[in-house]
Structure formats: C-alpha cells, structure tokens
Lab assay of single mutants.
Amino acid sequence: DELEKRVKKIARKLNLSLDQVEEWLKRNNNDELVEAVKRLKKK
C-alpha cells in the first residue's frame, strides 16, 4: 500500500534496515508509518 511504499522509500533514501527505520519513526512519533513497517516486516 501507499504507506508501505513510503517506508521502503525512506529506508532506501536513508540506507537503513526496516528495524532502523522503525526506531527512527518511533522517535518521530509517526505511528501510522510504524504500523506500515510492522506489516512489511511480516512479509
């Protein structure tokens, strides 16, 4: 979905793993995208 695409884009842009992106999003209080990261990690 759109949020998952955004997460992947962030990960690529910042050259981070999904775990690192998740931490980064949590620090930025971006719950919506944190949920998207969790969905991606399950895939």
Rank of each mutant, 00 (worst) to 15 (best):
D1A: 12
D1R: 11
D1E: 12
D1F: 10
D1L: 13
D1I: 13
E2W: 13
E2N: 08
E2F: 10
E2D: 12
L3M: 12
L3Q: 11
L3S: 06
L3F: 11
E4Y: 08
E4W: 10
E4R: 07
E4Q: 05
E4N: 04
E4F: 07
K5W: 14
K5I: 13
K5T: 12
K5N: 12
K5E: 15
R6H: 08
R6T: 12
R6E: 13
R6A: 13
V7L: 09
V7R: 02
V7E: 00
V7A: 05
V7W: 05
V7Y: 03
V7K: 03
K8L: 15
K8G: 07
K9L: 14
K9G: 09
K9I: 14
K9T: 13
K9Y: 14
I10V: 03
I10A: 03
I10T: 01
I10N: 00
A11W: 10
A11F: 06
A11I: 13
A11V: 06
A11T: 04
R12H: 09
R12F: 09
R12Q: 11
R12W: 10
R12A: 12
R12C: 15
R12N: 07
R12M: 11
K13V: 13
K13D: 14
K13W: 14
K13M: 14
K13G: 06
L14I: 02
L14Q: 02
L14G: 02
N15M: 10
N15A: 08
N15I: 03
L16S: 01
L16V: 05
L16T: 01
L16R: 03
S17R: 06
S17G: 06
S17M: 06
S17L: 07
S17V: 04
L18R: 02
L18F: 07
L18G: 00
D19G: 06
D19K: 07
D19H: 07
D19V: 06
D19Y: 06
D19S: 09
D19T: 09
D19L: 07
D19I: 05
Q20P: 00
Q20C: 14
Q20N: 03
Q20W: 05
Q20V: 04
V21C: 06
V21A: 03
V21L: 15
E22H: 08
E22S: 04
E22Y: 12
E22V: 09
E22L: 14
E22G: 05
E22Q: 07
E22W: 12
E22I: 14
E23Q: 10
E23M: 09
E23W: 10
W24F: 12
W24H: 03
W24A: 01
W24Q: 00
L25G: 08
L25N: 00
L25I: 04
K26W: 08
K26Y: 07
K26E: 06
R27D: 08
R27Y: 11
R27P: 01
R27E: 10
R27N: 11
R27K: 12
R27H: 10
R27I: 11
N28I: 14
N28F: 13
N28K: 11
N29M: 11
N29A: 13
N29G: 15
N30T: 05
N30L: 15
N30P: 04
N30C: 15
N30M: 15
D31K: 12
D31N: 12
D31M: 15
E32K: 09
E32S: 09
E32N: 07
E32Y: 09
E32A: 12
L33H: 02
L33K: 01
L33F: 04
V34N: 04
V34P: 02
V34S: 06
V34G: 03
V34I: 12
E35M: 10
E35L: 09
E35Y: 02
E35T: 05
E35K: 09
A36E: 02
A36S: 03
A36I: 09
A36F: 05
A36Y: 04
A36L: 07
V37I: 11
V37W: 05
V37F: 03
K38V: 07
K38P: 01
K38N: 06
K38G: 04
K38L: 05
K38A: 06
K38T: 05
K38M: 04
K38W: 02
R39M: 05
R39N: 06
R39A: 09
R39P: 01
R39F: 03
R39Y: 02
R39V: 03
L40F: 03
L40I: 08
L40V: 05
K41T: 03
K41C: 10
K41R: 13
K42C: 15
K42A: 13
K42E: 11
K42Q: 13
K42D: 07
K42R: 12
K43P: 03
K43D: 04
K43I: 07
K43V: 06
